[in-house]
Amino acid sequence: MCNKKRIEMMNEVVNALLKLKVFREFYTEEIQAFSNYISRHQFLAGQVLMKKGEIGTYLGIILQGEVNIVENSEVLVTRTEGELLGEIALIQSQSRSANVVAASNGEVAVISFDDIEKIKNTHPKIAIKLISVLTRSTWQKLQESKTKNTNNYIVIIANENEYYPVIDFIVKHQDFWQSHPIAITPKLAHILSTEINININIGKYLDYQRLIGTETAVGSLIMSGNVSAVIYLRTPILAVKNQLNIEAFLILCDVYQVPLATNISTAKAILYYL
């Protein structure tokens, strides 16, 4: 009886998720696998679902009802059925930026960030689709917030085997960088300043260890709307080892319509374009 009840509850979750526009790209069997990590929670009007400043540990999907995003007692926006809650804290690895308060009775599906990491390992294809959903939602909300920085950077990143080809590229076009601020890793910046000794306009330092997920990651900068182009040189054979992270990063570039170069020839084309 317990197993039967559990199956019925799981089917309810699957059916509820399949109805949502946000999951329109998922197959039924993918939703079924994803739903194994989901828990459902009912909420009452006035209930605080997420608190500003707290470290985000879970993502919410509104199944029924409405919630308000509140800051300093002001309702910034109302979220309804099918919308996500808390994904910005996940994607950008930062604390909650506002309170989430129920505007009506309703129900939310919850998945922890730890379980999302498990999905990356056990169901990588589902994880890629999920990251695409999260990044699109984050982009839409960042657009709504209208808090874009006025700086626009050209991101230049490379793995260690490609350091000197990319440095040679930077040196050959050093006049270009005077009017185009770049975002690079501290290690690349160190090589440029100590070994090459050229003065270029470095606007931001990045963490190459994770393409997405931290405030200093390339993905966070892209989602802020402050990237004109990305030059990403990597050794293709080595790239396979980190394929999921790279796939998520490529999706980000597609979602945000950011020109992406993966070799010197396409990097030159981007400079010509800009």
Rank of each mutant, 00 (worst) to 15 (best):
I270T: 08
I212L: 13
S265Q: 13
L260K: 10
F169A: 03
Y58A: 07
K4C: 10
A248W: 04
K5H: 11
T80V: 11
A269V: 09
L271Q: 09
L59S: 04
H123P: 05
S220R: 01
I270L: 11
S145P: 00
R79Y: 13
V255G: 06
E215N: 05
E195N: 15
L142F: 04
N99M: 02
K118E: 14
F249N: 04
G213T: 06
E117H: 13
R79L: 15
S93R: 00
E25V: 11
L18K: 11
Q47H: 05
T80F: 02
T122S: 15
W177V: 09
K268W: 02
R40W: 01
L211P: 00
F23V: 12
I246V: 15
R96H: 07
I184K: 01
V101Q: 07
E25Y: 06
M223R: 02
L142W: 04
E215K: 12
I119K: 01
A267R: 05
N105W: 02
I200P: 00
I154T: 15
S137E: 09
L274V: 07
R79T: 07
I237V: 12
R234V: 11
K125C: 07
T28M: 13
S73D: 15
A239M: 12
Y58I: 00
K141R: 15
E30I: 08
Y153R: 03
L221P: 00
A89N: 00
A127L: 02
I198F: 09
A109G: 09
E215H: 09
I167K: 07
I131L: 09
E74N: 09
I154Y: 03
S193E: 13
F113V: 03
N152F: 13
K51E: 08
A229R: 06
Y205N: 08
E215A: 11
C2I: 15
Y27L: 13
V155K: 06
A269E: 14
I31Q: 11
L192R: 03
K19P: 05
I154L: 10
F169H: 04
V100Q: 01
L233E: 02
F26W: 07
F26G: 04
V48W: 01
R79N: 10
G203H: 15
E83R: 03
I270Y: 07
E215Y: 05
D254V: 04
E71I: 10
P259G: 10
I246D: 12
T122W: 10
Y273S: 11
I264H: 01
S179R: 15
I154H: 05
A45I: 09
L134K: 03
Y163C: 04
S112G: 14
A189E: 14
S95A: 14
G219V: 02
E247T: 07
E195M: 07
V155W: 03
L142S: 05
E107I: 10
Y205I: 02
Y163K: 14
L44K: 15
K5G: 13
V258P: 10
M1H: 13
K52R: 13
I202P: 01
V77G: 04
V110K: 06
